[in-house]
């Protein structure tokens, strides 16, 4: 496998981060609950979700956070360092159900992780970029907006 290096010099302010599509399914939420230790019934129990005022079980905010982190690490590669990351959970997102062990009931992408470079600079010899990042749902809402700061390599500095 060829190692990808994103150099600071090659990143321009205004550039878009390659978008990462995700389809939230009920199965994915179960996996996330087990992997993250979030066993809040809000994410798997209809009556509870209704009583909590969100209608039906919602996608874990922290799962959307992990998608955004993946979008960044896929893009920046392993030579870069994710320094700062933040996101806010502003809107509810809902999973689609499964029709079989392996297939979602509907053939569609429910979410896209996206981002844009907003600034670049040098501080204490670290070459950094700043980005706006967000998860967009299929209603076009930016349900999970955030920011990230990444330290990148410069050319010739191996």
């Amino acid at each position: 496998m060829k190692k990808k290096i994103l150099y600071w010099e090659d990143v321009e302010v205004g550039a878009e981060i390659p978008s990462l599509p995700k389809t939230a399914t009920s199965q994915m939420l179960v996996k996330w609950a087990a992997a993250s230790g979030d066993f809040n019934p809000l994410h798997y129990e209809s009556t509870f979700a209704e009583n909590q005022g969100v209608g039906k079980p919602i996608v874990h905010g922290q799962l959307k956070r992990a998608w955004l982190v993946q979008m960044l690490t896929d893009w920046i590669g392993e030579e870069a360092f994710l320094k700062k990351f933040s996101c806010q959970f502003r809107a509810m997102d809902y999973p689609i159900m499964m029709k079989s062990l392996t297939e979602p009931a509907e053939e569609r992408t429910t979410h896209f992780c996206k981002g844009k470079v907003t600034n670049k600079g040098v501080e204490n010899e670290a070459h950094f970029i700043e980005c706006d990042i967000w998860v967009e749902n299929d209603k076009g809402e930016k349900s999970t907006p955030g920011k990230a700061t990444v330290i990148l390599k410069i050319k010739g500095d191996e």
Partner: peptide, 12 residues
């Protein structure tokens, strides 16, 4: 009694 996750911030 109603709780939602508001967001997270990391410094690594």
């Amino acid at each position: 009694s109603r709780i939602v996750d508001g967001g997270i911030e990391y410094e690594f």
